[in-house]
Design a protein around this nucleic acid. Structure first.
Lengths: 184, 184
DNA sequence: GCTTACATGTAATAGGTTACATGATTCT
DNA sequence: AGAATCATGTAACCTATTACATGTAAGC
């Protein structure tokens, strides 16, 4: 899904400015699987306006720069539904963390373990952060997604916590020859 | 991690041609978190050769086009380790499937459920496919990654299977008024 | 006083995908 | 005979990120 469809989707929940769209994409549940910058949102909204998929209304606010509030048109709604109806493409994950694990044998064990510890802390934070997103669950399928997200994070966290000790033993163990001074 | 580091990483397991690098990236465990096309691999290898991070050797093979076998140099190895030592950036997931779930209320329930069923089938396939990748596990941290991948797929699969009936009931239930014929 | 939040937008840059171009060999 | 695999590489294209450019207002 490109930035255009993303904007249409957010607007399907109600009118918003470009700035507000960005804010919503940063929070769960969107943040689970999408991120987008201003540099792609504003051009997308301009194009969508030209194509008649959204309508813009300028709202003055005293001395601040005027907001542009965008609303979904009927054509935009149809386009969104059409995009959602396509069989979804494969997930694309880019993970430096998993990459580092795969080549972890090239790093000092202590560094690798500290990277895993950092990830455990991040997952804990993210789980807590996902917990309080009550307001955005507006449909059964959104609730279904929320549960899936929680399951995903929780199972990764459990795995990391449960298997870290074993990994530490495997990394440090084989080199530690008893009765000899550890080389390096 | 960009295409260059990816190539260096694959080559750290042994010399290979551009074609072979692509093949390895398509299989587990790389396929879990990375994908890259020829269009980024070949230019990356050319640049790396110029930078002295890899060395190339042409290998004639009868009538087929000659292979170029690339090997990691000491400078390349250092560069790889340096990249791996950086704190990993955040994971980036792009998932049309999760996006569709979030806006599933805009689709007919039967379509949404069939999309979930397709995902269940894909996950089953992927789990089986990950099962037989014994040869590529060459270190404790690679084994750790493999276990994490299995856990991730398995827990998502379990969630989808366990919660699909509930979602189906929630989607279809409220509309099904007893003693009336179901509308569509 | 400094930082963060609000608010929009453009331009340069980087990175990757897709399609193109070519051709032998092996499997079905 | 036709499809898939092996094998390399370029060019056009698309998309998105980052930095730039500008300025107010609220909170610490």
């Amino acid at each position: 899904m490109d930035a255009k469809i993303l904007c249409l989707a957010v607007l399907s929940r109600g009118p918003a400015s470009g700035y507000e769209i960005k804010k919503r994409l940063e929070q769960p549940p969107h943040a689970l699987f999408q991120d987008t910058s201003f540099g792609s949102i504003y051009p997308a909204l301009r194009l969508l306006t030209g194509e008649g998929a959204v309508s813009a209304e300028a709202v003055a606010q005293g001395k601040r720069p005027a907001k542009k509030i965008f609303s979904l048109t009927e054509a935009g709604r149809e386009r969104l539904i059409s995009a959602l109806s396509q069989p979804p493409g494969p997930d694309r994950l880019r993970s430096d963390f998993l990459f580092t694990l795969l080549y972890g044998d090239l790093l000092p064990p202590s560094l690798l373990l500290s990277i895993i510890d950092a990830r455990i802390a991040e997952l804990e934070e993210r789980l807590a952060w996902m917990g309080n997103c009550g307001g955005s669950i507006t449909s059964p399928s959104a609730a279904f997604l929320h549960g899936l997200g929680l399951t995903y994070y929780q199972s990764c966290l459990d795995y990391l916590r449960n298997n870290r000790p074993r990994l530490a033993a495997d990394l440090l163990g084989p080199k530690q020859v008893p009765h000899e001074r550890a080389a390096e």
